[in-house]
Computed example of a mutant assay.
Amino acid sequence: MKWTFEQLKTFSVVADLGTMTSAAEALGFTPGAVSQQMAALQAGLSRPIFARDGRRVTLTDAGVTLLRHARILLEAERRAATALSGPQSEQRTVVSVGVFGSAAVSAMQPAIEYLRKTSPNVAIQAMEVDVEIMPQATLDHRIDIALGLSYDDAPQPPLRGVVTEVLHQEPFLMVLPPEAAELGGDDAALVDYANNHDWILPPVETYFGRACRFACAKGGIEPRVQHTVTDTAVSIALAESGVGITLATPLMMGLRPTDTPTVALPGNSQRRIVAIARSSALEKESVLAVRDALIQAFPPLRT
């Protein structure tokens, strides 16, 4: 069965008014145009929908059934047209956002608040995804947009069809045992201390683990890794207890605030928080709204 919405609209008016002529006047068509539309509609159906009653047309049982469903379709079309006529959909749109620990804690609440003010019909659904597979997860349509990571000395390889935008950058910090408080900001003393004490770092097989080692090398440090720990809060707690040195960033420190000494890692290595999305996803108003909310969730980048 094949029909158009135009045919169904005309059919509904003919059914209401009872003649092709009256329907033509109501619609601004010629009677011949209405007759042609109804003939085309009938040709696509297996059962007759009209019966003649003098000069009037009445509906057969099949016509009554078609009219009932046609009005449902026409109402759905009307609602869809109304929903799309404004800048926002009438329906609540949920955008899935890939997140990881420290970025989620920092960005989700302010991004949600920003959307409530600017795009109230768009909602965020946070989904924890391994940061190493975040770009591929967006490409595979598992998430609409993501908060990912990039490092100065260990950049992620680009993926065709994936767009990356820097939202925030922050320095690496050395989280020191309490005994190192007297070192202050003397880079030479820090490097000497760091090369002669135990370290707590993630496995070298992980993205952050590799980035930590590259950042240390840039600062002239060869970390003696005694403890292999993935969890940021645990690493900071171990440094606080005096068993070794670890690396973190200001946002990561938000997961485990501490009074133990923290100093900038020599070498000025940076970690970047990035927004990752398929280029096609950014054609959706809802995804663009979430991207803008994520941008607003972080302090402005310094140039």
Rank of each mutant, 00 (worst) to 15 (best):
R55S: 08
G54V: 02
P266R: 04
G242L: 10
A62Q: 02
Q109V: 08
K284P: 10
A43D: 12
G244E: 13
G148I: 03
M134R: 11
A111N: 10
Y151L: 02
C212W: 00
F298P: 04
Q169K: 12
I295G: 05
G54P: 04
D130I: 08
A146C: 10
S279I: 04
E179I: 03
V97C: 11
R256S: 13
L288E: 09
N196S: 07
F5C: 11
E205I: 02
D61N: 04
S12W: 15
Q42W: 03
F11G: 05
T260C: 06
S150P: 01
L167K: 06
I72K: 13
R52E: 14
R116L: 01
G101C: 06
V122C: 04
R256G: 07
T260D: 00
A211P: 06
E205R: 05
T82W: 15
Q270F: 14
D187I: 09
A111M: 13
Q125N: 06
Q36T: 10
V287S: 01
A51K: 10
L190P: 01
V163C: 04
P31G: 13
L159D: 15
A146P: 08
T260W: 00
G267Q: 01
T230W: 15
G220R: 01
E240Y: 14
L265Y: 00
R55A: 09
Q7F: 02
T82V: 10
V122A: 04
A181E: 08
L167N: 05
I124R: 05
Q125M: 07
D186I: 10
V95Q: 07
L282N: 00
H69A: 08
L176E: 09
A39C: 09
L115R: 01
S119N: 15
R302F: 08
I143P: 03
G161H: 05
V191N: 05
G254N: 13
W3T: 07
D152N: 02
A76H: 06
P223E: 03
L115W: 00
F172K: 05
D16F: 09
A188Y: 06
F100G: 03
P261M: 08
L8C: 10
S96Q: 15
S89W: 15
G242S: 12
L17R: 07
S89E: 14
G18E: 14
A83T: 12
Q270K: 15
R302D: 08
V204Y: 12
L45N: 00
R291K: 11
S46Y: 12
D130A: 10
T118G: 03
K117C: 02
L67P: 01
H141G: 06
S241E: 15
L66E: 12
V229Y: 12
T228A: 03
V263A: 11
M20Q: 14
D186M: 10
T249L: 09
